[in-house]
């Protein structure tokens, strides 16, 4: 049995972190840019929340707000029931320790002049997790074992440039683990890795989730990766700063209720020559993604949406409403007619 199948059911627990109605507006010469608009999310302990979307959809901005790296223009980020921006210094520092970030490019995020041991022991000593260099080195070795860099002695003295891409990303995960985080925010953490290595890094992250009960905010543009890593968790699909669909990952992948999610899933090629022939662009009305500075009125997907209805979709912004149990979408047409309108015909062959 793979580590992927043993995720604990996280229903009914109080969320560790909630983002309530958060927005981020950047003021630019071209006018305000609504990078993230009215987003609600929550992460439970030991649960995976996947944030999926194309570039410019606001995934990373949302993650930066969750990590406390950016202050939302509107809305509130709660950690353990407290608003992080009204915390005192000590609580804020606890929050910072509990939420760790793993970046996309480990070559850029690891200090090239430090060995793996120096990288791992610095936070341990700085935050007083262990006392003394010897204890810190022992703890560093233990962390490397957790991320499958074994035997640790072979890696402690290495510099980032001496490691392969997969090893580097494992080292940056080990660094994120130094302070016993409760949540890891993984921002496209596997997208730079070769396919052959990606799965083993994901399996390692899955084991951390199960063994250490770490919650994940997992950001990716690749729905297949979200499916694999977040199968037992939830997925939120973002488009131009808003969440357009949210629900349990298997539902999002196999029975989407928003036309945008449907279009994405229909467009992704399959590693299977016969199956991939059933894929296509469908009846999308346009390929152009509107600019964030000039969002179309109403539903921002309407200029591209195959279900577009004049008067309905270009008026008000649709709310995220529950379409099926636990699965909600922000679409006027689906909210009115149900999710069956998304696939009136059998798949074209």
């Amino acid at each position: 049995m793979s580590a992927m199948e043993t995720a604990p059911a996280a229903e009914g627990r109080t969320p560790l972190m909630t983002l309530a109605g958060v927005s981020q507006v950047f003021d630019t010469k071209a006018g305000p840019i609504h990078a993230v608009n009215q987003v609600d999310l929550s992460i439970n302990p030991g649960e995976v929340l996947c944030l999926v979307g194309e570039s410019g959809s606001g995934k990373t901005t949302a993650a930066r707000m969750a990590a406390g790296l950016a202050k939302p223009t509107n809305g509130q980020v709660d950690f353990d029931g407290t608003d992080i921006w009204s915390m005192n210094r000590r609580d804020f520092s606890t929050f910072r320790r509990s939420v760790q970030y793993v970046h996309q490019d480990p070559y850029a995020s690891l200090n090239p002049t430090r060995t793996v041991q120096q990288t791992l022991t610095a936070p341990l000593l700085k935050h007083g997790v262990v006392k003394g260099g010897k204890a810190a080195a022992a703890r560093a070795a233990e962390l490397l074992t957790k991320v499958d860099l074994t035997p640790p002695e072979n890696f402690l003295t290495k510099y980032p440039h001496q490691l392969s891409g997969g090893q580097r990303q494992r080292a940056s995960v080990a660094r994120a683990l130094t302070l016993d985080p409760k949540i890891i925010i993984a921002d496209e953490s596997t997208s730079m890795l070769d396919v052959s290595i990606r799965i083993s890094v994901l399996a390692m992250l899955g084991r951390l989730r199960d063994d250490l009960g770490v919650g994940f905010l997992f950001i990716t543009h690749d729905l297949a990766i979200a499916k694999y890593f977040g199968w037992h968790g939830k997925t939120a699909v973002m488009y131009l700063g808003r969440i357009v669909e949210f629900g349990p990952t298997p539902k999002i992948i196999n029975a989407p209720t928003h036309p945008y999610t449907r279009a994405l899933i229909d467009a992704i090629p399959e590693p299977d020559p016969d199956l991939t022939k059933t894929k296509g662009l469908g009846s999308l009305r346009s390929l152009e993604i509107p600019s964030l500075a000039h969002l179309p009125p109403g539903c921002s997907f309407h200029p591209r949406c195959p279900l577009f209805e004049g008067g309905l979709c270009d008026g008000v912004v649709p709310e995220l409403v529950e379409i099926r149990s636990g699965q909600s979408a922000a679409c006027h047409v689906v909210a009115r007619d149900g999710a069956d309108v998304l696939r009136p015909d059998p798949p074209a062959t």
């Binding site: 793979s2 992927m4 199948e5 396919v195 052959s196 290595i197 990606r198 799965i199 083993s200 399996a203 729905l223 297949a224 990766i225 499916k227 694999y228 199968w231 298997p250 992948i253 196999n254 899933i265 992704i268 399959e270 590693p271 299977d272 199956l275």
Partner: peptide, 15 residues
């Protein structure tokens, strides 16, 4: 090692 998008959770292996 490549996850497909349709269907159930696949059994994947890395090299």
């Amino acid at each position: 090692a490549v996850p497909p998008i349709v269907g159930d959770l696949p059994d994947l292996e890395s090299i």
